[in-house]
Design a protein around this nucleic acid. Structure first.
Lengths: 103, 103
DNA sequence: AATATACGTAACCGAATGGTTACATGTCAA
DNA sequence: TTGACATGTAACCATTCGGTTACGTATATT
């Protein structure tokens, strides 16, 4: 699967988006992630595998645990695709200006 | 299907992303769209239905033709989701500044 | 050494996805 | 009004998806 496909389809699932938001705050092991869901741990494992293949998250093994963390750089795939529509960015300029000025 | 899901999964297909890019340049009828693909016209119709349900494109009937056009405002769904990760935007500020200054 | 913990993997299942062909319908053109 | 054209819809099919339960394996703990 090509990069853009893998990223967009990884993001097309609500549970996976939730995992990403969680991992953006702190790295977590599989059980810690699964505790936030009602679905089974193997189901979470599958989602993590998909996220990993899309490179939106990465994994480090530590003893018997696997710690997952968010790879924000991978959002560039989305960001770059969004750029195809220049007018979209024109419309966004004002809010982005505000955002910048607040920093 | 909720808004975010419908938009991200609409974007998860390469053919549909290609349709969006095409429609962002000009509105087109179904046959004109299908001419750019090797898959069948009914397959294109299905993709258009999905894009329409996600509100990424809209349709106007004119005689026996249906003209489809891109609804850029709908990309806000993606944009807004991307905002969950503030640090992502911090990193983007410089390039966006440039972009703004060029306008 | 025995047991508990943290995961992965396999096999399975129903539903959704992306494609096809065949046909129906509404509109334009001769 | 007959025929061509633009498109939708239905039925079908193989594959993928998101979930499950059962089991295997490596690492800690006692």
């Amino acid at each position: 699967m090509n990069n853009t496909n893998s990223v967009f389809s990884a993001l097309a699932d609500e549970n996976r988006r939730k995992i990403i938001v969680m991992l953006s705050r702190e790295r977590m092991n599989v059980n810690a992630i699964a505790d936030n869901f009602t679905i089974s741990r193997p189901a979470i494992s599958k989602h993590l595998r998909i996220l990993e293949n899309s490179k939106l998250v990465k994994q480090v093994k530590k003893g018997r645990e696997r710690f997952f963390s968010f790879n924000p750089g991978r959002l560039d795939v989305v960001f770059n695709w969004l750029k195809f529509y220049d007018k979209f960015w024109d419309k966004k300029l004002n809010s982005l200006k505000k955002f910048i000025e607040e920093k």
